[in-house]
Amino acid sequence: MSDVSRGDDPPYPPVRARSQAIVSGARAETVIRSGYQRVLPPVGDLRRLKSGAGSLRLIERHVRAYRHLWLVFASGITEPLFYLLSIGIGLGVLVGKVPGPGGQLVPYREFVAPGLLAVSAMNGAMYDSTFNVFFRLKYDKLYDAVLATPIRPLQVALGEIGWALLRGVLYAVAFTLVMAIMGLVTSWWALLAVPVAVVIGFAFAAAGMAATTYMRSWQDFDYVILVSVPLFLFSTTFYPLSVYPRVVGVIVECTPLYQGVTLLRDLVLGAPGPDLIWRAAYLVVMGVAGVALAARRIARLLLP
């Protein structure tokens, strides 16, 4: 088996001759210095995959893997629509009119709809970037396989977040259309609702993915719920800030979803102010920090 002869022009010397090079480091050094071997030229000529391209490959994988589950994805849009419907039919009548962004009274359903859009952008993004990422990280071992290829941790993080946003965009477009059809949109500023929903999704997808890298088991996801449910309930989604005592109001004003709700409500109800710029900046910064942390954590977990 060992001393296989490979024809009369062997691509390398017989095994026995080479094996002597290895037996001790010192001897190998001599052999190398005598010019008997050559080391390959550096691999720098290889094309590096661009960050974006690497992330797209991961998205491509998800498209393939979930093609047959399109109905599950599409049906996700029903959740905020059910809320909207229940408010339109029932709750709206109980509440009547509430003060809108400019202080003028607006029907309750017009008030709530943009809030629900923000919530659905958050929830959709969180679902993909927490549960699904955890599954791929711990059970599917997807990233172990991916990181053995030229794809880098940052590209994994960007790919996952990109995928979550893709889904978010679909939901946001559908929801905005329904809002418009139901006559809940009163301003052309509402055209910005979809991009803003994407920014909200980006912030929460990135933060969710970073948090997921710290999860030890499924039980830890209860902590995700611990964060997302209060955000959903208290970020002025269902009633204006004026309902709270001053102290609580200030705390709410600092939370990320409140920025998203305010952004969308002001745009959809046609009362945008300059404050929207730094509210958007808040979300972008949160997203960028999340991506950076997620990439670092993936590298630490999978490339020790």
Partner: peptide, 11 residues
Amino acid sequence: GAMGFGLGSLV
């Protein structure tokens, strides 16, 4: 808290 008290105050 959110619905009973918060929204409740409006209702």
